[in-house]
Write a protein that binds this DNA or RNA. Structure first.
Lengths: 247, 247
DNA sequence: CGAAGTATTGAGGTTCATCAATACCGGTGG
DNA sequence: CCACCGGTATTGATGAACCTCAATACTTCG
């Protein structure tokens, strides 16, 4: 239907990704919020020896849909998208992940969706087999992973309501509020969206033109302000919430 | 937008549901496929003492969206739907569960979606607090639950592609194939759908009329046969698969 | 056989996708 | 600093897909 192509370089991930210097958990910014948070110092050290840090540029893909599941990772910094596509190239973004989130498919042979960096990013990357083995021996880790997966599932199901039953206008309002919740704006309350218009369209299951039209209309009505390509200020939260509605 | 109402009785679930007689895991039909499969006899006994069997009639709702999460359960027999709605009554079915599946939200305060029996069903029901406690002490159980949740998440994300990017025709084809995979047909290859046309519409994020039109058209083209309200035979699998396409 | 509920069919309207042109942003080099 | 250029976003015109409303037909169950 639409055969868009990613402008960004889709280089081979694991070999290409530059391992980066520092590699101690002590200084890790996500050590208290990632799945390793409940491990004691010794166990965390052991886990860290299994993995390594890698840096990604915006646009790089870490894993592809349908590939063997060979790696999993913690996101240390940056924003990434999870996506699946139809055979003819229509794409649906099925998740957006941020610092301290976990990516990849542990305990399974296949990666069910691609993972691509939207901004420059840093990961703490583990070979899946070694990670699985470690997790089997550490209940706390598995419990954290379960908690996180259950939360992901809840969020994903809530998003199904949006995809299946909401209008374009409601979709955009819901998206903007969701972004507002995750990203803290600057002094003026302006949020820097990590997604292009096309990517927003791919999250919401609509076209880029529809996203654009809805946003300019909301601007005209004073619900939001648009600043540059990536900036938005949610001027009238109440109106947006009324639109996003849902349950 | 559409203010449909469930004809079925939405009675209070846990008190109303009739506890049923037999209650030994030894004879349980799902004991080797449900999450308790990896427990040893002693542990499974201990778990079974926490829970109880209940029977549901088609149409009964076991838990409501937004409720406190007070119970979780294994499905022993029957088919149930998981659903969320917008404030104005539009419904999206976010999952369909079968025998040996697990329902409810462990390790969380809220039930994020309603659970309603589509057919008569039997559950093995646990108070959430007691179940959580038991799970914390039994890594095998938590591991099974994690596996199952990861699988659910994969399936749910695959469904997002359908909701966001597929046409009505592709949606129906995908749905029918999915049903064919889960439900074994009779001697003639006729499958008895556990969902009404309206419920199919609610799974696919379209209207009942569109479901109906697509199915009659597929029938006219010889891809499927319709027998009665709930019966379908997938006559031309190849054609259906070409339509469902995806990746 | 009749009634209630469910599904199909039809006519018409709305929303959103598609195709196409123009405008804008932000970085690079003159 | 300005002009230019590639890429991205907006805007417009048109049409198709799907929704809505309404009537009819079919199933199933008492």
């Amino acid at each position: 239907m639409d055969m868009r192509f990613d402008m960004a370089q889709n280089v081979a991930p694991v070999p290409m990704a530059r391992p980066c210097s520092g590699h101690s958990c002590d200084a890790c910014v996500v050590r208290d919020s990632a799945i390793c948070a409940d491990l004691n110092d010794g166990d965390r050290d052991a886990l860290s020896r299994i993995g390594r840090r890698v840096a990604l540029h915006a646009g790089q893909t870490v894993m592809w849909e349908g590939d063997d599941s060979t790696v999993v990772a913690n996101v240390i910094e940056g924003t990434l998208k999870l996506a699946t596509s139809t055979g003819d190239g229509r794409e649906q973004i099925v998740g957006v992940v941020y610092a301290s989130d976990f990516i990849g498919r542990p305990f399974g042979a296949r990666t069910p969706h691609s993972v691509t960096a939207l901004t420059d990013a840093r990961l703490c990357l583990f070979p899946r087999g070694a990670f699985d083995g470690f997790a089997m021996r550490h209940g706390e880790l598995q419990h954290r992973l379960l908690q996180r997966t259950l939360d992901d599932l809840d969020r994903t199901r809530a998003w199904m309501l949006l995809l299946g039953r909401k209008s374009a206008r409601e979709k955009v309002a819901t998206f903007l509020l969701d972004m507002g919740r995750r990203l803290r704006g600057d002094a003026d309350g302006v949020i820097a969206l990590p997604l292009s218009r096309q990517q927003i369209a791919d999250v919401l299951g609509i076209t880029i033109e529809t996203v654009s039209r809805q946003m300019t209309e909301m601007k005209r009505e004073g619900m939001i302000d648009l600043v540059g390509r990536r900036g938005v200020r949610l001027a009238d939260m109440a109106a947006l919430e009324a639109l996003a509605e849902a349950g």
